[in-house]
Amino acid sequence: MAGNIKKLVLGFILLGAIGIAPRFLGIISLNMAVELAIGALFAVSLNLLLSYTGLLSFGHALFFGMGAYVMGISITYMDGITLIPAILMGSLAAGLTALIFTPLLVRVTGTAFSMLTMAFGQLMYVLCIKMRGITGGEDGLTLFDMPLLSVPGVFSLDMTDPATLYYTVMGVVLISIGCMWYFTKTPLGGVQAGIRDNAQRVEYLGFHVSASKAVIFIISGTFAGLAGCLAAIFQQVISVDGFLRINVSFMPIMAIMIGGLGHFLGPVIGTIFLMFLNQMAMRYTDKVELVFGIVFIMVVMYAPYGIHGLWVKARIYWGIFRHRKGALGKEERT
């Protein structure tokens, strides 16, 4: 119980910090925070698949990009559309894409699943380059006139204002991550964990494993699409390289690994770390990819359970250390 209260207090402090941050942060830091939040949402959506169902999607950029492109296209080609329906269309299109792929993806597991997702991610990448007429090809789509995020007569938010954008993104991201967390606590979430550990047994308990996997795949795809929409609003340019390239799929996986596989908030921590690493690397060297590559190798080799794993390990060692000290103390006394 005490642990819960501690967590609650911590949560409120964090919420407060997010709330007042724009008062203290400059525009650059504010933008970084927005980028971070979007990355975290993307990574958490992937983690829902990876840590809770054991499915490693290597082509999640497909959904991220799908959300962004559908939103961007609807803004570009539909006059007078406001942002809310555009975002909804983007996310739903991503979810729908996931739905289309489910018959295929529930039939394979393990590495074959990763490879299939990657293959379709690449297919989308190439298609988007080639469909120049709609997607702008390699140049991408530039959203010159960002519509207002508004409900007529109720509120109207201008996304080109950094602080407004910050609050909107933070709000959407927090609610989305909250939804996904809540989801892991529901019966279907429980079934997912069972599938991750032992799919066959779950099937023999009367659960339709393929259908359960399909549902989570669609949910994960939808939230990834939402993250894509937010990223598009933030960057105002939707390009194939920024939204559909293999690296885009790869970053959230790395964030999950660095944060700690199997932990719900691991990807958030991982995203923060990657962001920080990126800043440091850019400041001190021009070989950012080299730094990233080395860090990935180090993480996989020496900290396979990421920061969360290191933290658990440290606590265990701390426990042993204290225990030893206590034992020594007793010996001295006797």
């Binding site: 590495t111 990819e289 080299l290 590559g293 996989v300």
Partner: peptide, 28 residues
């Protein structure tokens, strides 16, 4: 890495990291 028992995700990421290092080394 195989000894970690994390399954294929670790190997995929490791080789991805290696490929990044090779690409950057080649560039430099």
């Amino acid at each position: 890495v195989q000894a970690h028992g994390l399954g294929h995700i670790a190997e995929l990421l490791l080789t991805m990291g290696i490929s990044m290092v090779i690409a950057e080394s080649v560039k430099s």
